[in-house]
């Protein structure tokens, strides 16, 4: 059991303070020990948390996310469909929170017109695949994660296999066209779905478990009928809705208690109006 000596070294390298009821280890030290013992960073994180030792990077999560929940996050697998506005922020927040495994799908490249709102879009990533920027970003912010890339626009036939491999799916699509296809596939796969959709300064978010009421009526019609085609989209509402989606994902993984089943959260930043509507 090569992991046994790894865990022993981690215990010796970890520290305690009066502030927390557990020991913790710094990220660079953990990476070094993982290298020495030929353990992947992703495995290392789980072994450490299983031993009741936290990672220093998660200390400020602790009052809301205890060690068991942190371990659940480290073991969790989420599919992010769309790595544009919503998807970029969702990836950022879930990686910082400690989700262990990401599957991400997007066939698109960054254009200048996406720089107003898409976190992963930079002058350096223009014309490049969004998922390449996602991989670079994830390595920078949390090397204890795994990211599997699907640099393509998914088709309905791709979904059953992907959905069977994850605990939940985040619908971060741009445009209305594929959303009902994804919703239906998630239902058939028994996979919880957390969706966000925005236009102008207005945004909505909703969690759908199989059999729940869904916001599918918002996604009827042709691509041109989506209000975002006329109203554009501001970064402020994108970040807000991505926050709600990320928090729902954490609530599903850590305690199976999301707040937006059979409901849709509505925000209008122009009027500073927020309401949760019953579907």
């Amino acid at each position: 059991m090569p992991w046994k000596s790894f865990v022993g070294d981690v215990v010796r390298a970890s520290r305690s303070t009066d502030q927390y009821p557990f020991a913790f280890i710094s990220g660079p030290e953990l990476l070094q020990l993982a290298r020495e013992h030929a353990v992947t960073p992703w495995q290392a994180q789980q072994l450490v948390l299983e031993k009741g030792i936290n990672l220093e990077r998660y200390l400020r999560n602790y009052s809301s996310i205890d060690l068991h929940m942190q371990l659940a996050l480290a073991r969790s697998k989420v599919l992010i469909v769309g790595a544009g506005g919503l998807g970029g922020y969702v990836l950022e927040m879930l990686a910082r929170l400690g989700v262990g495994t990401f599957l991400a799908a997007d066939g698109d490249t960054f254009e200048e017109s996406t720089l107003n709102r898409q976190l992963l879009g930079t002058m350096a990533s223009l014309k490049k695949f969004k998922l390449d920027a996602a991989m670079d970003r994830l390595q920078l912010i949390n090397p204890f994660t795994k990211l599997e890339l699907f640099p393509e626009f998914l088709q309905a036939a791709d979904l059953p296999d992907l959905l069977s491999r994850v605990d939940l799916v985040l619908d971060c699509l741009g445009g209305i066209l594929f959303r009902n296809t994804l919703l239906k596939a998630a239902h058939e796969a028994g996979c919880p779905l957390v969706t966000g959709f925005v236009a102008g300064q207005t945004g909505l978010a909703c969690t759908v478990y199989p059999g729940d009421r869904s916001p599918e009526s918002f996604w009827q019609g042709s691509l041109e009928q989506g209000a975002e085609q006329v109203l554009g989209t501001l970064s402020t509402i994108v970040g807000l809705i991505a926050s709600i989606q990320s928090h729902e994902a954490v609530a599903i993984v850590t305690r199976n208690q999301p707040g937006l089943r059979n409901k849709v959260f509505l925000a209008d930043l122009d009027k500073c109006f927020f309401q949760t509507l019953d579907l």
Binding site: L173, G174, F197, A199, E228
Partner: peptide
């Protein structure tokens, strides 16, 4: 009363 058009931006 609130009514909404199709919305799907992201």
């Amino acid at each position: 009363v609130g009514f909404f058009p199709a919305i799907g931006g992201g």
